[in-house]
Amino acid sequence: MSEVADHGRLMDDVYRYQRLFYDITRKYYLLGRDHMIANMQVHPGDRVLEVACGTGRNLAAIRKRHPRALLFGLDISDQMLISARRKLDGAARLAQADACSFDPEALFGEAEFDHIVFSYSLSMIPDWQAALDEAMRHLAPGGTLHVVDFGDQGRLPGWFKTGLRAWLARFHVAPRDTLGAAMQDMAAGAGTLTGHSLYRGYAIYGCLTR
């Protein structure tokens, strides 16, 4: 079995039952998601893709703020997509795919997107740099890449950081301490970057406009 299939099966195993109470529990520690959504400048007709869309929670929130946007979501976990389809009820086009290698035209009939979103997903994607590179390949000129994820917790007590990361590891989550630097490198050759840490480094938010 390929590494992609292995990871998809792992995510299905992790979320087979967790998806049933995922949104209720994650609101307490996936901080900054609504901050990211509130800062998205989405116009009517804009195509918005969330990579690793999970239960569809973010796409539902984007739809509420921008009802005339065209919404798309992909996830490697079929189990998560069950929840997303129920939540979105046809309001977004959803597909099972690997974040590091996907064909949006085959999946959605779209070659590129005006907004691509990563929300607490890069910390769960083994080759997260490849996922960012793949997203940039499908970002339209003038489009924006939006990212929120765990930060380095640099301004929080050491015991908190140690405990948080040990707990996250139980769910196959690993904060990417070089995420900010990686986005700066991408912006150097592809556009402009705005962003900052949130909650004393608990999370990091970035917005890269091509």
Rank of each mutant, 00 (worst) to 15 (best):
Leu49Met: 09
Glu50Gly: 03
Glu50Met: 05
Val51Ile: 15
Val51Asn: 02
Cys53Gln: 08
Asn58Ile: 11
Asn58Cys: 10
Ala60Ser: 14
Ala61Ile: 07
Arg63Tyr: 04
Pro67Val: 08
Arg68Glu: 14
Ala69Arg: 03
Leu70His: 12
Leu74Asn: 08
Ile76Lys: 10
Ser77Arg: 06
Ser77Leu: 06
Met80Ala: 10
Ser83Ile: 05
Ala84Arg: 08
Asp89Phe: 00
Ala91Tyr: 02
Arg93Pro: 00
Arg93Trp: 01
Gln96Tyr: 00
Gln96Leu: 10
Ala97Thr: 10
Ala97Cys: 11
Ala99Thr: 10
Ala99Cys: 11
Ala99Asn: 11
Cys100Ile: 10
Ser101Gly: 13
Glu105Gln: 14
Gly109His: 05
Gly109Glu: 06
Gly109Tyr: 07
Glu110Asp: 01
Ala111Trp: 01
Glu112Asn: 09
Ile116Cys: 04
Val117Gln: 02
Val117Glu: 04
Phe118Gly: 03
Ser119Tyr: 01
Ser119Glu: 02
Ser123Cys: 15
Met124Ser: 15
Gln129Trp: 06
Gln129Ser: 11
Gln129Met: 11
Ala130Phe: 04
Ala130Lys: 15
Ala130Arg: 15
Ala131Asn: 09
Asp133Val: 14
Ala135Lys: 00
Met136Glu: 04
Ala140Lys: 06
Pro141Tyr: 01
Leu145Phe: 02
His146Met: 02
Asp149His: 07
Asp152Pro: 06
Gln153His: 14
Gln153Phe: 15
Gly154Pro: 00
Trp159Pro: 01
Phe160Ala: 14
Phe160Thr: 12
Phe160Arg: 12
Lys161Phe: 03
Thr162Lys: 15
Ala166Phe: 09
Leu168Trp: 04
Leu168Gln: 14
Phe171Ala: 12
Phe171Gly: 02
His172Leu: 09
Val173Glu: 11
Ala174Arg: 13
Pro175Met: 04
Gly180Asn: 08
